[in-house]
Computed example of a mutant assay.
Amino acid sequence: MTVWLPVALGRDIEPGAATGTTVDGSSVALWRDAGGTLHAWADRCPHRGMRLSFGFVREDRLVCLYHGWQFDGDGACRHVPAHPRMEPPGSVRPTRYRAFERGGLVWASSADPADDTELSRIPSVSTPVRSVWMREGREQVVDRLRSLTEDFQDKGTVAVGILDGTAILAGIQVVDAHTTALHLTAPGAVPDDTVRALVRRMHDLRDSATAFTSVAAS
């Protein structure tokens, strides 16, 4: 079944910037136009296959780094520098993913999810904390987070609980079989010193996974 997947903290994708992520194992480029609208596309330029996440944003267009082809927010090619007078063919456009923001997280999907009931229960207002990537599978990462957290609940694409007295919500992103990302938020408005403490906790969690991986590999 197709579901909405957490792929980033919305705060980390600034207007006029592009970055890469994954959805169901496929590479995806996330970018915001100058007006702040979020876009999610397959991370492959339809011209020569260059990663679009390596490109740059010019007002409302994403520009491929390789040959400078420009694509508007609907995915239509609007300018080819090598042929400035040419009308770009309408068929040349990247594959677009569905994406939106809720609870401080960016959610993406390759198709219309059949059910978004759980997503609707996520608080609309949250304080972003930090994203961390760990070289471990999903279950190992979730177990590490569970060991630090009270009232822990694994809900599939997210986990909730109480960490050091603060309610948290972690988006769980399976990058591949050996890499998992946690995108941590705290529902509501949270003081800066509490956010800093949670960031340190996330760094400790990441470092513990790194240390375990290094020992296991030696």
Rank of each mutant, 00 (worst) to 15 (best):
R61H: 09
T95M: 13
W69Q: 00
A76G: 05
L145W: 08
R58T: 00
L52S: 01
A111Y: 13
L145F: 14
V129A: 03
S126D: 02
Q140E: 15
S120E: 15
D72L: 01
R138C: 11
T117V: 14
H83G: 11
E101F: 13
P84Y: 11
A111S: 15
G55Y: 07
F56R: 10
H83R: 09
E136K: 13
E87G: 01
V63D: 02
M50L: 15
E118L: 15
M86K: 09
A114N: 00
R138K: 13
V142K: 04
V63P: 01
P113A: 12
P84L: 12
R102A: 13
L62K: 07
S109H: 11
P94F: 08
G55A: 02
A111G: 14
T127L: 03
V63W: 02
H83E: 15
D43W: 04
V141W: 06
D116T: 07
F71S: 06
L119N: 10
S109W: 12
V92E: 12
F100R: 12
V63G: 01
F56M: 03
S131L: 13
R85I: 09
F56L: 09
H47C: 07
G49H: 05
L62Y: 01
C64W: 04
G104M: 05
A108E: 04
R93T: 10
H47N: 01
P46I: 02
R144I: 05
R130S: 12
F71R: 03
S109G: 08
P113V: 05
F54V: 00
V142W: 06
R135G: 11
E101G: 08
G137T: 14
R44H: 12
R51T: 04
P123K: 09
S53H: 03
V141F: 08
G73I: 05
S120D: 14
P84W: 06
R130T: 08
P84F: 14
G90R: 09
Y66S: 00
G49W: 10
R135T: 09
L145Y: 11
R58V: 02
P81F: 10
D115C: 08
S131F: 09
V141L: 13
R44P: 10
E136M: 09
R96C: 10
D43I: 03
S91H: 12
A76V: 09
A82P: 06
R130L: 15
Y97R: 03
R78T: 04
R48C: 04
L65T: 01
R93S: 14
A76T: 08
D72C: 03
R96W: 13
M50P: 00
P128M: 13
G55Q: 03
D60V: 00
A99N: 08
E87P: 03
H79G: 02
V142I: 14
D74T: 11
P46T: 01
S126T: 13
R146E: 15
R48V: 06
G103D: 12
S120I: 07
E59R: 00
R78D: 00
Y97M: 12
P123T: 04
P89K: 05
R85N: 15
G55R: 02
P123V: 06
E118Q: 11
H67V: 00
S131P: 04
G49D: 08
G73E: 01
R48N: 05
W107I: 04
Q70H: 10
R146L: 13
P88Q: 08
A99D: 12
R135M: 07
